[in-house]
Structure formats: structure tokens, C-alpha cells
């Protein structure tokens, strides 16, 4: 696969503050890389360095084979960038703003018209094309920024929180848009919405305090969770908790109330069959049995804050706010 974005040993200091510290990764065509991390972790700073806005303190970035420091214009030409907060010129209309972006990217008249038309259609901007951008809603402003980033059909897309401020329908639409473009582009998105990672990313980096603390596919990251292969069972039987805790491969059992238990395996073990077999053998009336793939939010919390403990009383999956 063709490596479109290469980042090596990237670091950025702001005075005494180390915003990004020795970050290395690469993104190939066809990949959607998710940047995950708490606010202030260095996601946006990394993006600003990849797009050539900020000069790194150390390290190098190459986009489409062009070093961002030495061949800045060629590298920038290959990028479509949605900066944090989707800034735009408020006094312009989307139509004139997009025309400006197209001209600045050196598109000819016909190519500009075609590109703008396609981008406007993709993000559904038709209704507001002639209104000043500063009068638009947050969702429309974000879509203007997106349209600006994709109108020249760049091989590399860098999107800083592309779905921030969108309603659920618009989020869905933007995710589909990203998935649709993923095949022939290298894309980086940053987000703090964990469900987005599973929905659009082929790979994700968890960043905390300027460092990459985890790197893998969404499934691999989920597998790092304590909930990976954990079993949730709801039975109406006396002494179920003790019986479950005695099964081979079970690390601990947490009672969730109303006859529901969360059964954690020891690392790497699979306990589904043991739990199901035991229930069958004992003739338990099993109302519910769920095997979890893992919880990204738990991995995220553990990786970014170092919180180790699984709390004693646990909310059932899906009840926890995303």
C-alpha cells in the first residue's frame, strides 16, 4: 500500500509545555486513521504540524512523498484540511468562500465549478450558498469547512473533529461521506466520540499527554479492554455468584443486581463456554447471556488517565453515556 502520510519522531514544545512528544506513524491510501484522546492531548497540534501550519520542534512529516518543511506547497496541495472549529471568513457566503478556496488551490474555472458543485452536493449546502457564513448554524459552518476540504478531491484528508456540532442525522451523513471517500484517500480524523471510531476508522491511535499510548484497529483496541470476552448473565438461581466465581478462567464476578452478573475472565481466557455449560448443567433459567467484545471507553479511560480499577457496581452495557 502507498504510504501517503509519514510522521517520524514528531514533537512540539510550547515554551516549557510539551504538547506533542515523539509521535511516529504512517497512513496509507485506503486507511481512515482515528485520533482519540482527551482535550489537550495533542491531537490538534499534531494535525497542525502535518498540514504545515505549525513547524515541529523535532521530527519530520511527509505528505504524498513531499516533506512539509522543504516542499511545503506540494505537500499542502495534496491535503484537504478541516481545522479545529471549522474556521471560515464570516463575511463571505459559502459560494464565494468555496470559489476562493478553489482558486487558491489553483483549480481552473471548469474544474473549480465541478469540484464546488460536487462538494456542495456531498455535504448538502445548496440551501445556504448565498447567506453570509457568520449567520449560519454551527452544523452548516462545519459543512462549509468540509466542503472546502474536499472540493479539490485531495489524496489526503485531515479532519479535526468533523462531526462536532452536528445533529445525529448529520453525523451519520458525514460518516458515510468519509467512508465513501476512504477507498482512494488517506484520511485522518480526530474525535472524542468513541462510537465514531468503530463506525468509520480502520485504525485508531489513542493519544495522551502528547504520546501515542495505543495503536490498533478498533477491534484490537476493544480486545485490550477488561470487558473483552467478559460475559454478562442474568439468571434466577440461588448461589449463582459463588458458582460463577468458581468456574475455571474466571477472575471475578460483579453483581449488577436483579439477578444479573458480570463475569470477568483472567487475561486472554475465554469463559463463554464454561459459563454457558455450567448454566445448562445446573438447569439455570438463563434470561440473558451476552459476550462482550470489549468497551472502548474503558480502554480509553485506562489508557489516558491510568485508572485501573473496574468499579464494584457496573452499569449495564449501553446504559453508560458515550
Amino acid at each position: 500500500m502507498e504510504r501517503m502520510i509519514e510522521v517520524e519522531g514528531l514533537a512540539r514544545h510550547f515554551g516549557p509545555l510539551v504538547a506533542v512528544d515523539d509521535v511516529s506513524f504512517s497512513v496509507s491510501r485506503g486507511e481512515v486513521l482515528g485520533f482519540l484522546g482527551p482535550n489537550g492531548a495533542g491531537k490538534s497540534t499534531t494535525m497542525k504540524m502535518i498540514t504545515g501550519f505549525l513547524a515541529p520542534t523535532r521530527g519530520r512529516v511527509a505528505v504524498a512523498g513531499n516533506d512539509i518543511a522543504r516542499k511545503a506547497l506540494a505537500a499542502k496541495a495534496a491535503i484537504g484540511y478541516l481545522p479545529e472549529g471549522a474556521p471560515a471568513y464570516g463575511d463571505m457566503t459559502p459560494a464565494s468562500f468555496l470559489a476562493f478556496a478553489a482558486r487558491a488551490r489553483g483549480l481552473g474555472r471548469a474544474a473549480a465549478r465541478a469540484g464546488i458543485e460536487r462538494a456542495v452536493e456531498q455535504v448538502e449546502l445548496q440551501a445556504v450558498l448565498e447567506q453570509p457564513i457568520e449567520t449560519l448554524s454551527k452544523g452548516y459552518k462545519r459543512r462549509v469547512g468540509l466542503a472546502q476540504a474536499i472540493l479539490h478531491d485531495p489524496p489526503v484528508l485531515i479532519l479535526d473533529e468533523p462531526t462536532d456540532g452536528l445533529d445525529p442525522n448529520q453525523k451519520h451523513q458525514v460518516r458515510n461521506l468519509i467512508l465513501g471517500m476512504a477507498r482512494d484517500k488517506a484520511i485522518i480524523i480526530s474525535t472524542h466520540i468513541l462510537e465514531e471510531v468503530g463506525a468509520v476508522c480502520s485504525r485508531a491511535l489513542i493519544i495522551a499527554q502528547g504520546r501515542i499510548v495505543a495503536d490498533g484497529t478498533p477491534r484490537e483496541l476493544e480486545a485490550m479492554s477488561r470487558y473483552h470476552n467478559a460475559v454478562q448473565i442474568r439468571v434466577a438461581a440461588e448461589g449463582a455468584e459463588a458458582a460463577l466465581a468458581g468456574l475455571p478462567g474466571v477472575e471475578r464476578v460483579v453483581a449488577l443486581g436483579e439477578g444479573a452478573y458480570q463475569v470477568f475472565p483472567t487475561a486472554g481466557a475465554s469463559i463463554t463456554e464454561a459459563v454457558a455449560g455450567h448454566a445448562r448443567a445446573q438447569g439455570w433459567e438463563v434470561e440473558q447471556l451476552v459476550v462482550e467484545a470489549g468497551r472502548l471507553d474503558e480502554v480509553f479511560r485506562r489508557m489516558t488517565t491510568g485508572e485501573q480499577d473496574v468499579p464494584e457496581s457496573l452499569p449495564a452495557p449501553g446504559e453508560e453515556a458515550a
Binding site: 499542502k76 481545522p83 474556521p87
Partner: peptide
């Protein structure tokens, strides 16, 4: 102030 400088300076314009 508006952040548009980030947009302007990441366009392929010197």
C-alpha cells in the same frame, strides 16, 4: 482571532 489564519496558511499559498 477567528482561526481562519489556519485555513489561509494551510492552502498551497506561500
Amino acid at each position: 482571532k477567528s482561526g481562519s489564519i489556519e485555513l489561509l496558511l494551510t492552502l498551497p499559498i506561500s
